[in-house]
Design a protein around this nucleic acid. Structure first.
Length: 996
DNA sequence: AGATTGACGCTAGG
DNA sequence: CCTAGCGTCAA
């Protein structure tokens, strides 16, 4: 009956958890504040954690395995800090309520790990973050009985409201509680500051808390109790004490509840009173015709601040309230005003006739300026939070674009496009709500959007991808790939691809436009002013692009790609949750393995920490000294210490058992954290859709994130070394195969079709370098394997005598040379001495002299012009090419050469994407869609009956140089595409291109 | 006093 | 060479 403590699979991403943590947090905040009130009043010495747990479990019928503890401080009202160390053990999961990392497995993390490692004593002070311990012991455990056998005598049996969060708790049937969120001024997690009004049931809350992902946890989860002694801290004692703690909390009556209850009741009466008054006032406002915010129904927007601050009952503490007021008076206030003013110009408020006229005018406008207006009052052009969210890599930044709630689309049409649209009106198109399409006007608007994106007048929009997604998702508009949209952000990026995080603001400075710090009174004027700037900006960028010969690339590649990317984001991939669960289940047992590692080192240390590992390997075990031949090991780039990377560790394998273990550990750890748990956190209702970023890679490549679908292992990982027996329930010698790509499955009746450019970069190198030998191989070779051919040429051997090893070596050398890697890096890569590596490089360059000639030319060109170009004239500025520092200059030279090849390949792949999609759309009867691009590979999902025709179609398009490049360039090498298809992404069988 | 952040290291993909 | 993502650690 004892509950089993095992990790909940932990989706690390913040937004994936919002529904859970937000709710849980709200509730816990209320409970926390109650406790503080009580403590003040009664000076109680009760353990806060215990109290929290009682309250929580009374409310929610017990969330089994939740341990609460106290947070000593702060009005931030964290749920609680770490419990005493004895209650933590590896495999536990704690939810950190306020930090980004919402949930982390205790095992392997410094905080809790050190608990285990230290064997006793409290968690270091630094780790006392707000945490809520959750175990995986599922709902069926004995703990659920608690709520049954313990009817709540002390708590108010009626509804009550938390004074600070304004949550109204209502008792539902039985043990379930509903709570009503009436006002809420924002969660640091959500980053919103929206008042909301929704009713949640605690039943779902519990469910969500335990099943933290979309996956059901299988019922046979009772395995995995660590045997005593296996892990020092995981003794029966601690488990018992933990359980008793949980049980105890529900037997002892908490103190002072009646007073709270009375207070709450009283408060509720007051609140009702105020609510009534407020309603009256609202009603009055409405009748007297004063425009109020457009949003209606249960959702009240944060924009109507009057109500919030005028109401006497406002329950935020005074200090806090004042702070908010201060914030409001600054910039925020102004922008908020924008939105309110705009309500007058919302198209939905126009009469039918007026609406028709407006839409007609916009459709005939030569230039249409578009920007999104967010619910918090900011726009794409003037983001009030822009200063705060600069970082690209944090989830917050990216989510902001994605999840920040777009309230409406602002559109401004202007004639001719020469000069700012003086006196032009800005129209707001609010996003249709749930009930769209019912109104004939909504249909009107939809038709308008459809017409707008279909016509050839130019539409200018920052971050147009988001706009297009909104259009497809919210307005239900489907469009073809040819949208005459122009994105100044992409244009600015094209001018300088190294410039990261291009924004409207930055683009302005790029073309020396000034951003006026407005003191305009009317907020509409501000928006219109921004629109003028947008128009002006695009015009300037146009001139600059033309001057730099980038305009064709911009129009024909980047802007065509944009709608396609938007469409791809709305084509989620189906995932097989069973497969994923199986992987997850296997990897969860991996904890065991980890705990065995420290014993090999003689003392505990953090395996994930390269610093600690370095200390163990090189300072304590002195493995670098034991290496035969006294080889020097690679150093880290910045710290100039001995690296613990795979290359080094694999050299050390013979000297000690640890390196091998670490290597395997790293592999499995990566698999676990990134590809299984990370992936699971991206699953929404059985589907995964990634986000595509057009402007993040300086080479012109695409990148994908959340998840990074371009970096999913292409081969399966077999965990076969069971000598440590670290996977429970498997016998030694069992093989477990883990292959994340296998969990991507096609829809029923559909298959995946992968089209792979063969050695595209090498072919382009041949083209660029104009090397006769290389060209000859590519044009004349019938052989399927280019590298064998290449090796035979290089080593002057007949094809039949080339060994696989030699082929691999050639491949590596070729790519190393292409990437400009020096002899050191190649040596590391091939695991040989630098001397040998140098010899190899030299012999390669002798055989293919044009290659080195090409890189020399490339560098010279760059030195003359300060930039490099690709076949499509894409350019990258490389200022360091003239740097006095030889290190920097060498790096710049490598970058220059590499950009030529990699960027050209990226161009070609982008062109291929566009052409493939184009072809598919022109054959409307074929059921196929492009879903993923992995640099040189396109993955399509294709209906089974159309597979054969699409296969040949795709191949002919991708191999047709004229289609891809048009008049941009004439390639000297043929392009080869290999195709494969299958039902899962993991198992694609090659299709012979010869026959159909 | 604890969350946040930037720097660093490692490893998937190409 | 250039991505994303997971991790540690000190400020």
């Amino acid at each position: 009956m004892s509950p089993v403590w095992r990790p909940v699979s932990a989706p690390p991403q913040l937004d994936r958890f919002c529904h859970l943590s937000d709710d849980a947090q709200l509730v816990m905040k209320g409970i926390y504040r109650q406790y503080n009130e009580q403590r003040k009043q009664q000076n109680t010495q009760e353990q806060p954690g215990t109290y929290y747990q009682q309250m929580y479990e009374r409310r929610f019928g017990a969330l089994p395995g939740v341990i609460f503890s106290s947070s000593q401080t702060r009005q931030t009202a964290s749920i609680l800090p770490g419990p005493s160390s004895s209650t933590l053990e590896p495999g536990d999961v704690y939810i950190n309520s306020l930090s980004n990392q919402l949930e982390r497995t205790v095992c392997g993390k410094s905080n809790a790990h050190s608990v285990r490692v230290n064997n006793s004593g409290p968690i270091p002070e630094s780790s006392h973050s707000s945490t809520m311990l959750v175990s995986e012991s599922s709902k069926n455990s004995a703990l659920t009985d608690i709520s049954m056998e313990q009817p709540d005598a002390a708590l108010p049996n009626t509804n009550f409201e938390d004074t600070d969060t304004d949550i109204l708790f209502q008792q539902d049937k039985g043990d379930s509680w509903r709570y009503e969120k009436t006002t809420f001024e924002g969660s640091p997690l959500l980053g919103n500051n929206e008042k909301c009004h929704s009713i949640c049931s605690t039943n779902t809350l519990e469910k969500e808390a335990v099943y933290a992902s979309d996956f059901k946890i299988p019922s046979d989860n009772m395995r995995g109790i660590a045997s005593p002694g296996n892990s020092p801290n995981c003794t029966t004692d601690t488990r018992q004490s933990r359980q008793s703690m949980v049980t105890n909390t529900c037997t002892g009556p908490a103190q002072g509840k009646s007073s709270i209850s009375a207070r709450l009741k009283q408060h509720m009466i007051i609140r009702k009173d105020i609510q009534m008054k407020q309603d009256k006032r609202e009603h009055h406002k409405r009748q007297s015709g004063v425009p109020i915010n457009a949003s209606e129904g249960s959702t009240t927007s944060c924009l109507d601040t009057d109500r919030k601050y005028s109401s006497a009952h406002f329950s935020t503490p005074y200090k806090k309230q004042k702070k908010i007021m201060d914030d409001q008076t600054s910039e925020t206030h102004k922008v908020l005003a924008v939105s309110r003013q705009h309500t007058a110009r919302e198209v939905t408020r126009l009469s039918d006739q007026d609406l028709r006229n407006v839409l007609q005018t916009l459709l005939s406008a030569q230039e249409v300026l578009i920007t999104l207006v967010y619910k918090n009052g900011s726009t794409q052009l003037r983001d009030i939070n822009a200063a705060q969210t600069k970082k690209k890599s944090t989830g917050i930044f990216r989510q902001k674009q994605w999840t920040s709630e777009v309230q409406s689309v602002a559109v401004c049409g202007c004639e001719g496009g020469n000069g700012p649209p003086h006196g032009a009106k800005v129209w707001l198109f609010p996003l249709p709500g749930q009930d769209h399409n019912k109104d004939s006007r909504d249909t009107h608007i939809r038709v308008f959007w459809k017409d707008l994106v279909s016509n050839q007048h130019r539409k200018i929009c920052c971050d147009a991808k988001i706009f297009l997604i909104i259009l497809m998702k919210e307005f239900n508009v489907h469009f073809i790939i040819d949208v005459a949209v122009f994105d100044p952000v992409v244009a600015a990026w094209l001018m300088d691809p190294d410039c990261e995080n291009v924004t409207f603001h930055k683009s302005l400075s790029l073309v020396c436009l000034t951003w006026k710090e407005h003191v305009l009174s009317s907020a509409v004027d501000v928006l219109r002013e921004d629109m003028c700037l947008l128009s002006e900006l695009m015009k300037c960028l146009y001139q600059k692009l033309v001057a730099r010969d980038l305009w064709v690339l911009y129009c024909c590649v980047e802007m065509k790609l944009l709608p396609l990317l938007a469409a791809m984001e709305l084509r989620p991939l189906r995932v097989d949750s069973d497969t994923m669960l199986r992987f997850s289940d296997v990897l969860k047992q991996f904890v065991k393995f980890e705990s065995s590692i420290p014993s090999n080192a003689g003392h505990p240390f953090l395996i994930n920490s390269p610093a600690q590992l370095r200390q163990v390997l090189f300072e304590e075990l002195k493995l670098d000294k034991k290496l035969p031949g006294g080889k020097r090991l690679a150093k880290t780039n910045i710290g100039h210490q001995i690296s613990t990377s795979e290359a080094v560790l694999s050299q050390l394998v013979g000297t000690h058992c640890l390196p091998a273990i670490i290597l395997e550990y790293r592999q499995v750890q990566k698999l676990k954290s990134t590809y299984v748990e990370g992936m699971m956190s991206c699953v929404r209702e059985g589907y995964i859709s990634t986000h595509w970023d057009q402007t993040s890679a300086a080479t012109g490549r695409l990148s994908s994130y959340q998840p990074n679908i371009q970096a999913i292992p292409k081969t399966s990982t077999v965990i076969s070394d069971y000598t440590n027996n670290y996977i429970v329930g498997k016998k030694s010698g069992d093989r477990v195969e883990i292959f994340p790509r296998d969990s991507f499955i096609s829809h029923d009746g559909w298959s995946f079709l992968a089209a792979d450019f063969q050695q595209i970069e090498l072919r382009l190198l041949a083209h660029l370098a104009d090397d006769p030998t290389l060209l000859k191989i590519f044009t004349e070779s019938r052989s399927t394997d280019i590298f064998i051919e290449l090796t035979s040429q290089w080593l002057s051997k007949p094809v039949s005598l080339v060994t696989t090893q030699e082929r691999e070596q050639t491949k590596r050398v070729v790519y190393s040379v292409m990437y400009g890697a020096g002899k050191e890096r190649l040596a590391e890569y091939l695991k040989m001495s630098t001397h040998d590596a140098k010899a190899i490089i030299d012999s390669f360059l002798v055989k293919f002299p044009a290659v080195s000639q090409f890189s020399r030319k490339c560098v010279e060109f760059c030195q003359r012009n300060g930039f490099t170009t690709t076949i499509f004239k894409r350019r990258r500025l490389i200022p360091n090419i003239k740097s006095p520092s030889p290190v920097l200059r060498a790096q710049a030279e490598r970058q220059a050469v590499n950009f030529c090849v990699q960027g050209s390949a990226a161009d070609l792949c982008k062109a291929a994407m566009i052409q493939v999609e184009h072809t598919l759309q022109s054959h409307a009867h074929l059921k196929a869609r492009l879903v993923v691009q992995i640099h040189d590979e396109l993955l399509l999902e294709v209906s089974d009956e159309d597979l054969n025709s699409i296969r040949s179609l795709v191949q002919s398009v991708m191999e047709d140089e004229v289609t891809l490049c048009g008049k941009m360039v004439t390639l000297k090498v043929p392009i080869k595409v290999s195709l494969s298809s299958g039902k899962t992404w993991g198992h694609l069988s090659p299709l012979d291109s010869g026959k159909l």
